[in-house]
């Protein structure tokens, strides 16, 4: 069994993606970090701390050519990856626009490209490398905002539609790839103090690191703690779980 493990993380510049990347490095993983913000300093600083484990790559998940370039760059360095974490996501300040207000459809398309299509396109591009990996695990940072059954919002069209669509796309990949040995994680990280909307949200509940820790336990592990005991994750069911391990209905 090969002890060297390789991961790809999208949206790794800051926030949850950065915390996930840092957590993987601390665990000894080789990480290819998708970077959308070349001028943001955190990943460069992290690279200086883990020069042998971290490779930063330009990656805009809304661009097919960028995705393919990133996959090719990874393939130049390794013949396999074990873990793909689709973390990149955006939100908008037009969330509260009700249907009685003029909607911003260009913004909805942007959210859909990044939040919904991006993770699917990235997954498809990296499948040949994942196929050679041992873990074959696909992880997706989604949101409770993608739960139709639990939806209580009265607007947020672009964001909620993008996350619900993501959940559907992930389920399709699950249906197709699970028979080939792939396993999946779908994660609601909670309300985080991140730059997802472009500026730091200081009102949110959690620091990214507070969500990254349970996320990595979920992404890497085969059990979930429940009632103080570990319970095996049923890999033949796709469920969305939050940072407390709770299941969210679709």
């Amino acid at each position: 069994m090969n002890t060297t493990r390789y991961a790809v993380v999208t949206g790794a510049d800051r926030g949850l993606g950065f915390a996930l990347t840092e957590g993987l490095l601390e665990r000894g993983w080789h990480v290819f970090a998708g970077s959308y913000l070349p001028d943001w300093p955190q990943l460069a600083e992290l690279q200086s701390r883990y020069p042998d484990l971290l490779v930063n790559l330009p990656l805009d998940v809304s661009s097919d050519s960028s995705i393919l370039s990133a996959a090719a760059a990874v393939e130049e360095r390794t013949r396999r990856i074990d873990l793909l974490i689709n973390n990149a996501g955006v939100i908008t300040d037009r969330n509260d626009d009700s249907i009685r207000m003029t909607q911003d459809y260009d913004e909805m398309i942007r959210l859909y490209q990044v939040n919904a299509l991006g993770p699917i396109q990235v997954s498809e591009a990296f499948l040949p490398l994942l196929e050679q990996g041992e873990l074959k695990r696909l992880c997706y940072v989604s949101s409770e905002a993608g739960s139709i059954a639990k939806a209580e919002r009265t607007a947020w069209f672009g964001y909620c539609m993008s996350k619900a669509a993501l959940n559907r796309g992930v389920h399709q990949l699950f249906d197709r790839l699970r028979p080939d040995g792939y396993s999946f994680r779908l994660y609601h990280p909670g309300w985080l103090r991140t730059y997802m909307s472009g500026t730091l949200n200081e009102e949110a509940e959690l620091e990214p690191s507070e969500s990254a820790e349970p996320a990595l336990n979920y992404f890497l592990g085969s059990t979930l703690p429940w009632d103080g005991k570990p319970h095996a994750i049923d890999e033949d069911q796709l469920v969305m779980r939050d940072y407390q391990g709770r299941e969210w209905p679709f």
Binding site: A116, L117, I120, A164, A165, R168, Q172
Partner: peptide, 8 residues
Amino acid sequence: MARTALHM
């Protein structure tokens, strides 16, 4: 995916 978006 788009149909799911419609449901949302």
